[in-house]
């Protein structure tokens, strides 16, 4: 399988008035064509920042990429000229944002916003672009697309708005889609429909998909592999089903244990104690040690590398064997 995207040793920091926030600290991951990688983590774990760095839409200043490389279809995008980078965006890699209401421009009709992709990247006339916008809306199954193409984002329901976001990302049939919490702002029933649509379009176009989420439930059905992030690092990577059966990192284990389950009805729900660390002061050693039930002296001093714990599996825990066994 050909590698579509390869992120190597990526470091991103935000230079703020309060100090330097180390948002991403040596992330490695790769996505093949047609493959879905789920990036899992709490807010502040660096999953969105990594995505923004890949897309080249990091707020800079204060954000800076201090180390690492990002290869997209073999080319190092960080060394590309600004204009070459812009041409990639939207056309070959596209992004779906969390809250479609604020992510869509309130004063432009959805037809204008969809059509703009064709006007800018393909040089179509406004009229042809609008026809393509209607096709796209049909494709993401928005009813009465022809009548609604001139409507504004606020005139659509949340689910329909997210479909428009998806249509916009799919417009030029990119090779890579990054979906940043695409269903978080939606009702549970609508969530399933939107995820299904996304997965279906991905299969049809054989796109690589990075699905950023904090919801383990969303991941299970659609993802091929998972990367769990904590404090700007990847702490565990694995094919999707193995991680559910036998997590190799205490943090992943904690996340899985904190999912409410029907067979545990009446019992107190497990929660990982404490809070994620401040990115301004990440603890030395393993960043998870203050919250880890298995922490030993070595965890406070030595940062664990990503140990190879099986075929295509990695865990950044000194005690991965014990975690895997228990």
């Amino acid at each position: 399988m050909d590698t579509l995207l390869d992120v190597r040793d990526l470091h991103v920091e935000f230079r703020t008035r309060d100090g330097v926030a180390k948002a991403v600290n040596g992330v490695n991951y790769s996505v093949n064509a047609g493959e879905t990688l789920a990036v899992l983590g709490e807010s502040g774990s660096g999953k969105s920042v990594t995505a923004q760095a890949i897309m080249g839409i990091l707020d800079s200043p204060p954000g800076h990429i201090t180390r690492g490389r990002i290869f997209f279809q073999g080319a190092d995008v960080l060394s590309l000229h600004r204009e070459a980078r812009r041409v990639l965006r939207g056309a070959r890699m596209a992004m779906i944002f969390q809250d479609a209401l604020s992510a869509l421009n309130p004063v432009l009709s959805v037809g204008d916003q969809l059509g703009e992709m064709f006007v800018v990247h393909r040089g179509l006339s406004r009229r042809d672009a609008r026809a393509r916008a209607v096709e796209l809306m049909d494709r993401v199954r928005i009813p009465a697309a022809r009548q609604r193409v001139g409507d504004y984002p606020h005139q659509f329901s949340g689910g329909m708005r997210q479909r428009i976001m998806i249509a916009m990302a799919m417009a030029l049939e990119p090779d890579l889609i990054i979906a940043d919490e695409p269903t978080t702002a939606l009702d549970v029933t609508v969530q399933a429909q939107v995820m299904e649509l996304l997965a279906e379009l991905q299969r049809e176009m054989r796109m690589g998909l990075i699905l950023i989420t904090h919801d383990l439930g969303v991941v299970a059905d659609v993802a091929d592999k998972i990367a769990v992030m904590y404090a700007g690092r990847i702490v565990e990577t694995a094919p999707v089903h193995q991680i559910y059966q036998r997590p190799a990192h205490p943090y992943t284990k904690g996340l899985l244990d904190s999912i409410p389950r029907l067979d545990q009805k009446g019992q107190e729900l497990y929660a990982i104690k404490g809070l994620p660390p401040s990115l301004l002061r990440i603890p030395p050693g393993c960043p998870f040690h203050p919250r880890c039930p298995m922490a030993q002296e070595v965890c406070r001093t030595d940062e664990p590398p990503l140990y190879e714990v099986g075929p295509k599996r990695g865990s950044a825990c000194h005690f991965w064997k014990e975690t895997l066994g228990g």
């Binding site: 897309m55 839409i57 707020d59 812009r86 041409v87 990639l88 965006r89 939207g90 056309a91 596209a94 992004m95 944002f97 809250d99 604020s102 992510a103 869509l104 421009n105 309130p106 703009e116 992709m117 800018v120 990247h121 916009m168």
Partner: peptide, 18 residues
């Protein structure tokens, strides 16, 4: 400038002017 829809516009690969 920090609004989400501006970020979307950048992510769409639109030229800065636009």
């Amino acid at each position: 400038t920090r609004a989400d829809y501006v970020r979307t516009a950048v992510a769409k690969g639109l030229p800065r002017r636009r």
